[in-house]
Design a protein around this nucleic acid. Sequence first.
DNA 1: AAGAGGCCCTGATAGC
DNA 2: TGCTATCAGGGCCTCT
Length: 286
Amino acid sequence: MPELPEVEIVKQSLKKTINLRKIKNIVIYNRNLRFKIDEEFETKIISKKITNIFRVAKYLIIELEIKNFFLIHFGMSGTLHLVKNKKQKRTNLSFYSSEIITNKHNHFVIFFEDFKIVYNDPRRFGFIKYFQYYDELKLFLNRNGLEPLDREFNFKYLQKKIKYRKKNIKNILLDQTIISGIGNIYANEILFYSKINPNKLGCDINTEELKKLSINSKKILKKAILKGGSSIRNFKNSDGNKGNYQNEFKVYNKENIICPNFNCNGKIKKIVISNRSSFYCENCQS
DNA sequence: AAGAGGCCCTGATAGC
DNA sequence: TGCTATCAGGGCCTCT
């Protein structure tokens, strides 16, 4: 569930359940995520109370008492599941729903008084990271560009960032140091709504297009959040918070389908840009 | 500095 | 059925 809207949905669920709760225990089954989990990680968070949960771009951040923090990045396949102690009833915090309770890809479990949260991540591209100070966290987050939902994110920001870039706009949208929070699905959708060809270079994008990009980025991500995010692959049996935005996709995974734009008979094409699939209408995205 | 490409990892699916 | 190849919602590192 890696893109911004999906992380936001998980954050919202967690806020209702683990905020102001004390961490009773954490058990790590596999420390080898994208980065190896620090040997002292457990002792740093056990017995601390969670005082806030927030999200920046694709990062979920858990604030602990005494202003310590730890951050979760879900990589390509990371999910969190809430498991209640009584009757072992499981509430899905994520979008995948394979049997998660006993699973070789459960890498760590955080225990609370009457429930636990389980981190599952088959590909192990996700990671967790601890910060002792807010400034340290801030420094880490500042390596990234603004996220589209930031107030200061507008066409002028984009202009400043990409005016001289010879990189194609698809890769620009995916480059977290330029714009953060957008992944492959939403990049495709944003470019479609903005009628911009994914191969167009940053320096060739005009002001009108920059305006469309900034407005559509905000609009699409907000709408995706309202729809509960996107659930693709593996979402059968999902109880609880399954997303619906996948039903709104205009181009993502729509190869050979007729362009949904009124009066356009173009076909959706699939091309590969930097090893990632891009979907676009050849006719209206110039 | 900026851009391109390789690579990390497992699972699902397509094709033979 | 069983093998192999390809592809996945990401991003870091290295090389040029």
